[in-house]
C-alpha cells in the first residue's frame, strides 16, 4: 500500500519482533497464554539461545503498547538472524508470521 519494503529490514539486532501471530483475545485466557508462550519458546530455542520473551497481554480499559506482538530476545545477533530466517513467513495459528528486528534498548525499557 504505497510502501516499498524490499531489502529494507534495517540493521539486525538480538531482539526479534513477531507480528500477525497472536490476537489480544487469545492472550486473555491464562491457559491459552501459557500454551502460546510454550510454543514460541520451544520453536525459537531450535535456532538460538533465547534469553527472554515478552508477550504484552491485554488489560481491560488500557491501551497496552505492543499488545498483539511477541518479542524474543536472543543471546546474539546471529541467533536472532537465524530465527528470523526460519520463522518469517511460517504459519502460526493459521496466520502468516511477519518479523522485524527490534531496538534492544527499547525492549529493555519495555517501550513496545
Amino acid at each position: 500500500p504505497g510502501l516499498s519494503l524490499v531489502g529494507a529490514s534495517g540493521p539486525a539486532t538480538e531482539v526479534l519482533c513477531l507480528l500477525n501471530m497472536v490476537t489480544p483475545d487469545e492472550l486473555k485466557d491464562e491457559e491459552e497464554y501459557e500454551d502460546i508462550l510454550e510454543d514460541i519458546k520451544e520453536e525459537c530455542n531450535k535456532y538460538g539461545v533465547v534469553r527472554s520473551i515478552e508477550i504484552p497481554r491485554p488489560i481491560e480499559g488500557v491501551d497496552v503498547p505492543g499488545c498483539g506482538k511477541v518479542f524474543v530476545e536472543f543471546n546474539s545477533v546471529l541467533d536472532c538472524q537465524k530465527a528470523q530466517q526460519a520463522l518469517t513467513g511460517r504459519k502460526f495459528s493459521n496466520r502468516v508470521v511477519v518479523t522485524s528486528y527490534f531496538d534492544p534498548e527499547k525492549y529493555h525499557r519495555r517501550e513496545f
Partner: peptide, 29 residues
C-alpha cells in the same frame, strides 16, 4: 503446537514480504 509445517514450508504472498523494517509508524505497520 500452533506452528504449522517445517522451516521450509512458508507462505509467499506476491509483493508482500514478511520481513518489515523497524522504522515503520504504527499506522504504516
Amino acid at each position: 503446537s500452533r506452528w504449522a509445517g517445517g522451516e521450509h514450508e512458508k507462505i509467499f504472498i506476491p509483493g508482500m514480504p514478511t520481513i518489515l523494517p523497524c522504522n515503520l509508524s504504527k499506522e504504516q505497520e
